[in-house]
Write a protein that binds this DNA or RNA. Sequence first.
DNA 1: GCATATAGGGTACAACTGTAACCTCATTTT
DNA 2: AAAATGAGGTTACAGTTGTACCCTATATGC
Lengths: 130, 130
Amino acid sequence: MWEREAKITDAELEVMEVLWQGGDLTLAQVKEGVTARKGWSGDTVKTLLRRLLEKGAVGQEKRGVYHYRPLVSREELGDYKTRTLIEKLYDGKAKDLVAALVERRQLDRSDVAELRDLFDKLWEERGEDA
Amino acid sequence: MWEREAKITDAELEVMEVLWQGGDLTLAQVKEGVTARKGWSGDTVKTLLRRLLEKGAVGQEKRGVYHYRPLVSREELGDYKTRTLIEKLYDGKAKDLVAALVERRQLDRSDVAELRDLFDKLWEERGEDA
DNA sequence: GCATATAGGGTACAACTGTAACCTCATTTT
DNA sequence: AAAATGAGGTTACAGTTGTACCCTATATGC
């Protein structure tokens, strides 16, 4: 993911959210989706969609009427934003973020259980090599 | 941490970083610290410090010359930004963030070891109650 | 005492963001 | 066909952010 895509703003994120869920939508459908979530005017949605096109985060294809689809996945964007957050506030150490989540009680009992298993398995799989 | 403090921008973060390290600094010292890191003009640093004061993220105290000190800790800010990131991109589930870090290989062998132990211990401590 | 450096206050200004309105042309409705 | 509706294009406008300059009063160096 290049820099331009990375600068997706909060308002634009709402539009991406609708596209991530819908996959391939007309403007009318995007408007509907975003308006349902946020109550913004259709014109506002249009502007956000245009900016996302300019940023290369969304693609448009003319099939009768234009259809829009995300060019960045939520996973990619999450990954990017998480990495920059770790850089800026956790001294570049992903582990410190996880430790902070634990410290701050952001993980409940079942999360801890799942993650304990996950790290156990991970240790088995990747423990010996590399 | 209230909303105003949360909106610390990237440029402002550099100033916070210096204050977090220095604790209680004069403008001249903050300028020096930030300029050393980023090469920005002293005036720029002044502006950023003023905005941080307005946002309530930094306090000022006149002892001869003004001294500045952070009113928000790096931990608080990290926590806040992490939580909003989780809200916006991981469906509110902290566990999903951690799983993504694993998936994306953001944790190395020793991180995995440490975290495995951490979650093990956490499971022992908090496993039975709550 | 005069020159100069510095602290503090105010102003600047373009790019980006949030939130929209306006205009025009084609299509559908009556 | 006249009117209403909708798609697409363009423009708007205040607030925020990044990055800095200018002015004044005071302190400091000779």
